[in-house]
Amino acid sequence: MSETALRPAARVVTRPSTPRKRRRRSAYARRQGRAGLAFVTPFMIIFTLIMIAPLGYAVYQSLYTTKLIGGTSFSGFANYSAVLQSGDFWGGVIRVIIFGGIQIPVMLAIAFFFATIFDLGVARWGPLFRAIYFIPFAVPIVVSSVMWGFLLDPAYGPFNHLMNAVGFHNFNWLSGNLMIPSIIIIAIWEWTGYNCIILYTALKSVPRDVIEAAILDDTPLWRIIVRIKLPMVRPAIIMLVFINTIGAMQLFIEPTILNNYQAGVVTNTWTPVIDIYSTAISNGQYQLGAAMAVVLAVIVVAISVASLGFRGRRRGQQ
């Protein structure tokens, strides 16, 4: 299978839409098409079984209502109407948007800063520090949340002693006003290393000759970083914004664990996923929970499409 033969075939496979081309396809190209299908099929079967089918089943379930007295009956869009009118659910959505709106930019700025330092090679033992910054990502979120719960504990957590020492008495990191900032700190700690590695890899792929040319032109370092490197890793940054936004929308573990350290702050509707969990698991209203999950999925998809659209437009401009 020579490379020259493979190239046109591949092009045909990726553009099967026009019938004229399809008719012209050679026997070889058809074989290639079948081979492609064979490669894709196992994934598609698993994808259908574990993603599409449960999704479809959840949508189906969300149209029903089960009562302890009276059993299951078709209820149309009653569950959706309940979700759309639920102040608690939308309060949770707004809370995670605020959370993500602060956490993601701050984290990406820190991650880019460290990635640049590693990329420049000015720090000694760069690989060691890359590994150290990556460690929080390897710690299960439940474990890190428990750890941070002890660190921020209002009675004897070291962070509290710190605030006391600098003059803030009765400071409570886990109080109603500071729960979101505290979780932002935790999330930044957890995810900066991961984002840093992605950005570092992207920076490494910036062509050396471009940088060398800029250096020969006596361009200052900060300009190289901000004007050349940053734009060139924009696709990676957009991807990270995208992934982190989806993660932020699903905030669950950190507030759920911290709830054990501070009573009365994290409610059973504090984030959309906590709301879904208490509705489906604690209240036994699985179908209502399914409707909430579908609504949340639609919100996440809308944000994803918007961010991809932004990326596409950017490309078009260049």
């Binding site: 449960p54 999704l55 929308m249 699903q250 879904i276 969990y277 399914a290 999950a293 996440v300 994803s304």
Partner: peptide
């Protein structure tokens, strides 16, 4: 199980 729906990542 429930969040599977919203879980793209």
């Amino acid at each position: 199980a429930v969040t599977l729906l919203a879980a793209c990542s």
